[in-house]
Design a protein around this nucleic acid. Structure first.
Lengths: 208, 208
DNA sequence: GTCGTTGTATCACACCCGTGATAAAACGAC
DNA sequence: GTCGTTTTATCACGGGTGTGATACAACGAC
């Protein structure tokens, strides 16, 4: 068997370069040449691992989505079963999970930044359309499941309409992320965290 | 006096062409050539009215912001003083005002689409940075004022923290708009409207 | 060693871009 | 009519883009 130390890790190295370029200059700057430079590679090398820049960009977006969902699953697994906790703690754990989608630290900030760039590009670039649609459905599924479980265990009010609340919380999360990315001096990590918790608290059952 | 039938309206015609191009293909497609084609003009003509494409794009973004705020002021003026209305009506009027920032019809859909493209571009394009920052402050001022007045006239609960609530409602609005633009099959005008009203209703004072 | 696969590195081509320079046409003032 | 300004229209240049083709180096199998 010939060389082939690790073809897939090389691809991920290039993808990391894509992320750095996108972070710095947006998706439009992510040309083969700039990405190759960022990765310290020659254009020919990059083209050896990706047959076209379209494939590279799609692969990069997919890698970003995988990374996010992996971190999400890890977090959910860490927190374990929360159904026995008191309602306040339940909401706290729910916030902990959802916070993985917010740019609360440097890693997540980078992820959300790249995410926003890709999904907004998907509006006019058919290359990303299906991935963006899948991502949108994915966050809604997560948000809905989170709210459903909270409601089943009296963590939030029983009369809330889950369709509306799912869309409301999803919009809140996306809006927080977007604002934190675009206006970090206005919306910092603390603000994101405070708003998310305030929202979940506002759904708590009435005192009796 | 020479020709000069109307220099400023010509500029606005070009700006309209910019909007159509951005709607169709995103900001990156808005080159001088494509814009000139869309406007039915020659590149030279466009360049006669705008010394550089940077000036054109800035002017276009400013025009879009002016258009939005003009419609907003008109709407506020239409609704007039609401302090005498019952709380439910007050919140309804507040929703009517804020709904001007959501893509509820074709006109607003186009505006929000272009808006999102410009402000996201502002992250990596210094040309738009100041305008995007101004816009962010503007929406926050509107949201805050709306909430403040509601609170003063018992339209929403008196114990709500306006800082947090302003940021929460702002994020909700931005997130709704973003999702409606990116995933219109998931988030339509009816959903936007329902979520906004549900949010304001959730702020209503407790029954007594 | 030779061979063949894998990885690197360059060249060239056609395309689109913003912009400077310049010419030509259109039009009002006189 | 002439003159001068405004508007429209072209050309050319340098730079960046993706991609096809191709050559060269590196390395394991044999």
């Amino acid at each position: 068997m010939p060389k082939q130390i690790d073809a897939s890790t090389r691809r991920l190295e290039v993808v990391d370069a894509v992320f750095r370029v996108v972070m710095r200059g947006g998706l439009e700057r992510a040309s083969l040449r700039t990405v190759a430079d960022e990765a310290g590679l020659n254009i020919g090398s990059v083209r050896h691992y990706f047959t076209s820049q379209q494939e590279l960009m799609r692969f990069a977006m997919q890698a970003m989505l995988d990374r996010v969902s992996a971190r999400l699953l890890r977090r959910i697994d860490e927190l374990g079963d929360v159904s026995a906790l008191p309602p306040t703690r339940q909401r706290q754990r729910a916030a902990d999970v959802l916070a993985e989608l917010l740019p609360l630290d440097e890693e997540r900030h980078a992820e959300v930044t790249v995410f926003i760039d890709f999904v907004t590009a998907a509006r006019t670039n058919a290359t990303f359309a299906d991935l963006a649609a899948k991502a949108a459905l994915g966050t809604r599924a997560l948000v809905r499941q989170t709210l459903t479980r909270l409601q089943q265990t009296a963590g939030i009010r029983p009369d809330l309409d889950l369709d509306t609340e799912t869309e409301r919380l999803t919009a809140l999360m996306d809006g927080l992320g977007l604002n934190a990315i675009l206006h970090p001096e206005l919306v910092g990590a603390d603000t994101c965290d405070a708003v998310l918790r305030a929202h979940l608290d506002s759904l708590r059952p009435a005192r009796r």
